[in-house]
Every structure is written in structure tokens, then in C-alpha cells.
Nucleic acid binder design. Structure first.
Length: 418
RNA sequence: GGAGAGAUGGCUGAGUGGUCGAAAGCGCUCCCCUGCUAAGGGAGUAUACGUUAAGAGCGUAUCCAGGGUUCGAAUCCCUGUCUCUCCGCCA
């Protein structure tokens, strides 16, 4: 099995704890083995005589005493069982997913393996500008004003840049709906704790979430994955329901706690960004193929936009806790002279489904099985805007519009042409 | 935000402390009957989990959720959630 470097210490602690508490105890002491059955049976057995005596006006005290005692024992057994079950549940919920066999070894992003590469970075006669200097020209991309009304890591877009973002969004949605067969969905952008547990953001990774403090807290979604996947919470699907392929445009909100000093310039790392998300629910035997297909669907956007990119197979140490296997798509950014993540396509297998209780049956009376869930950005719109600006700039700081995007910009071929 | 009414099985809808996993109807499944037929009769029919070769049997849980009262809760009490009606407000 591939090693996950980060959580391994907690894994060891957890396993030792479980083993000590449950495995090594004798069967009769295993708190997870319910022992209230005899109590319950006796209790119900006493009930009818009790009622009969009461009806007949006979003395019920002796029976009552027995029944009462049994009830006390029963309660005690239940408490012991519930505590053990909850403790076990807490441990299980904190464990990360098991990496797929094809996940490479590695402790951080340097261990990721390039799977393929598409397109070639353009040669620039003079140094390429980054999106900030391109965008701030004419005041169409304004970080300062955003910071005055909110704080840093927010942006305001105007004019052609605001339109470009809308055009990109529309283009992505249309492509996934019309060419890749996804159903467009619209969902809440604030969700409760249960929804976040269902997709694995909680309990362990709440630091990166914006919380709205109500009597019952709500959280701004860090990705549409949360509400979209939760559409199938507690559902039992039939084979005729598959494949479930959904696409959703939404804003995403991330506190970016712990990323101080990283990507502080520009739109790469923002508290609020637009994203078009792909989500699939499939039977287990189809998830591997679905993962490849979903990744290709995200890649198709980059190809249509003529943006050079590479596909990375994340190593165990860089894998998200809920994911079993993840391909990152990294787009070429001339302004940074490097590839940067623009999409993350993951196969969660049954990890989320177990938390969501999203299941299916092969036949009407068959036992329900957990589905497999997958998702990927198709794409992160903000970063796509950055990529278009930086890759399609000319020496005047003007942007030529990729062919695929022109219908969405009223036929315009150039942006920022002042 | 104010006032009120609700939440029961696939659906409708009874049930105000024990014999209730829960009447009845509809729907559905199977069987039977029948030339007046867009009909009749009978039987069956909640779900999940565990156990199991098993869709058999048995066990456990579930009448919105969580707590409480009680020997015992669909039923009584508290809290929450959601739905509906009226008013207010609002995109």
C-alpha cells in the first residue's frame, strides 16, 4: 500500500487505541458486542402478564420490580455500547482514504508524477507580463478596492475582465452539458455541518472554512463538490439512475489559513473564486474509467482554450485525505514561468459515499452497496482567466481571444485594446 | 419578524400511554371468477442493519430529529428542524 506520510502518526495512534480497546479484550468484554438482548427479551416477555394482571385488578408490584430491574440493566448496556460505538466512529471518521495502487510514493508535491503534457509554452520576445500588470491596466482588475471593502485576497473585476470571467463560465458549462453529457445543477452556497462531514471536509479540515455563526452554524462552501455530492445523501439508487454526471457553477470560499505569504500577488489564491465543478456518482467497478473520463472532460476545456498544460498523478503525501487517487491539471502560466494547478480530479471511491450513505442496488431486492463518488474542477474559472490573460497577451499588453471563446464575447477578437 | 396548524408505511389517512411496526383506503404483486367489464372475490405487500447459503427464519432499530417523564411512548413534556396558512418585510 502506498504510504501517506502526513497522517501516519495519527493512524498508528488510532490503530493502537482501537486494538487496545476492542481487539484485545475478550469477546465477553467487547463493548461493541451488544449484550442487552436477554434483558430486552425478558422485558417484553413480562409485559403481557403485567398488563393482564393490571386489567384483572391483581397485584402488579412483584412483576414491576423485576421488569424495572431489567430495564435498568438494559439502559446500562446501552450506554456502554453507545459510548464505545461513538468512540470507534470518531476514530474511523478521522482516518484518511486508502490510496489507490497506482498512486506514486512520495511525501510532498515533488513526488507527483507527470502523466502527460499537452501543448507547448509560447516563446515570448520580451518577458511575459503576469495577469496582475495586464489586468490592472485601465483599472479593470482592482485588488486595492476589494481590500478596502473586504480584505486582502479579494478582487474586483470590471468591463472586459468581468465579461471574460462570465464568458469562460458559460463556455465551460455549455461544453460539459452539450458535449460531455453532464446535467447542470444549482445548489446552496451555505451548508451545514452534516453536509461537510458527508464529503469529508469535517471533522478534520475545518480550518479552511468560513463559518457563519448562527444558532446552528452554516459554512460557505469551499467547493461546489460539497452541496452537489450531498444531493445524493441517504439515497439508494437503482442501476437505471446511472451514470450520474452533474456540473455546477458556483463561487468557492476558502479562508486560506496557513497559506500566509504564498501567492499573495494576483488572483491565484483568493478567498472567493468562481469554479465550474464536475461531479459523478457511479457503481464501484466503473469509477476508475469514470475518473479517466472526468479528467479528460476537464482537459477538453484547456485544449479548446489552447492553453498548454500537464497532468500530474499526485503522490501519497500530496493526496487529499478523502481522495484515493487524484490527477491535478496544471496550466502553463507565462507570468510565473511555471505550471500551476487549475483543476484537481479525484476518485473518492466509497469514502464520501460511506459518510453520505449514498448507495445503490443492482437488483430490486439486492443489498444496498456504496456508490463511488468523483469530482474535478472543470475548471477553476479565476485561474483560467489568469491563464488566458498571460498566454494570449501580446507585446502591447492586449489579449487575443481564443477562438472557442469568441462566441461568448460577442465575437470580440481582442481584449484590453485601448 | 409576528400569529396559528401540522410532520405516521409508495400515496391518502386513523391512532392521546401497554394487546401498535401501526386501522382503513389507494397503489402494487400473486391467485381465482366472470360475456353487460374502465367489474368482482381471495391472499400478500414498510425500511434499514445484523445473523444466514438464502429474497427462509430470527434479532435490533425506525411513526421528522435529539433529549426527558414512565416498568412501558407513535401517543405525555422540552428543544430543534422542516412544511402549510395569515400578517409584516423583501430580490
Amino acid at each position: 500500500m502506498t504510504c501517506r506520510c502526513l497522517p501516519i502518526s495519527s493512524l498508528v495512534v488510532s490503530l493502537c487505541w482501537m486494538s487496545r480497546r476492542f481487539r484485545n479484550s475478550r469477546p465477553s468484554e467487547n463493548p461493541l458486542k451488544p449484550r442487552w438482548k436477554p434483558c430486552r427479551q425478558n422485558e417484553t416477555a413480562f409485559r403481557k402478564p403485567l398488563v393482564r394482571r393490571r386489567r384483572n385488578g391483581e397485584d402488579t408490584a412483584p412483576i414491576m420490580a423485576t421488569v424495572s430491574d431489567l430495564g435498568t440493566q438494559l439502559d446500562h448496556q446501552k450506554v456502554v455500547f453507545d459510548e464505545a460505538a461513538q468512540a470507534l466512529q470518531a476514530v474511523l471518521m478521522s482516518l484518511p482514504n486508502i490510496p489507490d495502487d497506482t498512486v506514486p510514493e512520495g511525501r510532498d508535491e515533488t513526488g507527483n508524477v507527470e502523466v502527460r503534457r499537452w501543448g507547448a509554452p509560447r516563446d515570448f520576445d520580451i518577458a511575459a507580463q503576469d495577469h496582475v500588470s495586464l489586468g490592472e491596466r485601465g483599472g479593470l482588475m482592482d485588488f486595492d478596492v476589494a481590500a478596502t471593502m473586504a480584505q486582502s485576497r479579494f478582487v474586483a473585476l470590471k468591463g472586459e475582465l468581468a465579461q471574460l470571467q462570465r464568458a469562460l463560465t458559460q463556455f465551460m458549462l455549455d461544453t460539459h452539458v452539450n458535449e460531455h453529457g453532464y446535467q447542470e445543477v444549482y445548489v446552496p452556497f451555505l451548508v451545514n455541518e452534516e453536509a461537510l462531514k458527508g464529503t469529508g471536509q469535517l471533522p478534520k479540515f475545518g480550518d479552511d472554512l468560513f463559518r457563519v455563526d448562527l444558532e446552528r452554524p452554516l459554512y460557505l462552501i469551499p467547493t461546489a463538490e460539497v452541496p452537489v455530492t450531498n444531493l445524493y445523501r441517504d439515497r439508494i439508487l437503482g442501476m437505471h439512475d446511472f451514470p450520474i454526471k452533474m456540473v455546477c457553477h458556483s463561487p468557492s470560499f476558502r479562508s486560506e489559513a496557513g497559506s500566509y505569504g504564498r501567492d499573495t500577488r494576483g488572483m491565484i489564491r483568493q478567498h472567493q473564486f468562481e469554479k465550474v465543478e464536475l461531479v459523478q456518482l457511479v457503481p464501484p467497478e466503473e469509477s476508475e474509467a469514470a475518473h479517466e473520463a472526468l479528467t479528460r472532460h476537464a482537459e477538453a476545456i484547456l485544449q479548446k482554450l489552447e492553453l498548454p498544460y500537464r497532468v500530474m498523478n499526485l503522490c501519497g503525501g500530496d493526496l487529499g485525505a478523502a481522495s484515493s487517487k487524484t490527477y491535478d491539471l496544471e496550466v502553463w502560466l507565462p507570468g510565473q514561468n511555471q505550471y500551476r494547478e487549475i483543476s484537481s480530479c479525484s476518485n473518492f471511491k466509497d469514502f464520501q459515499a460511506r459518510r453520505l450513505q449514498a448507495r445503490y442496488r443492482i437488483e430490486t431486492n439486492a443489498k444496498p452497496e456504496l456508490v463511488h463518488t468523483l469530482n474535478g474542477s472543470g475548471l477553476a474559472v479565476g485561474r483560467t482567466l489568469v491563464a488566458v490573460l498571460e498566454n494570449f497577451q501580446d507585446d502591447q499588453g492586449q489579449i487575443s481571444v481564443p477562438d472557442a471563446l469568441r462566441p461568448y464575447l460577442g465575437g470580440k477578437t481582442r481584449l484590453l485594446a485601448h
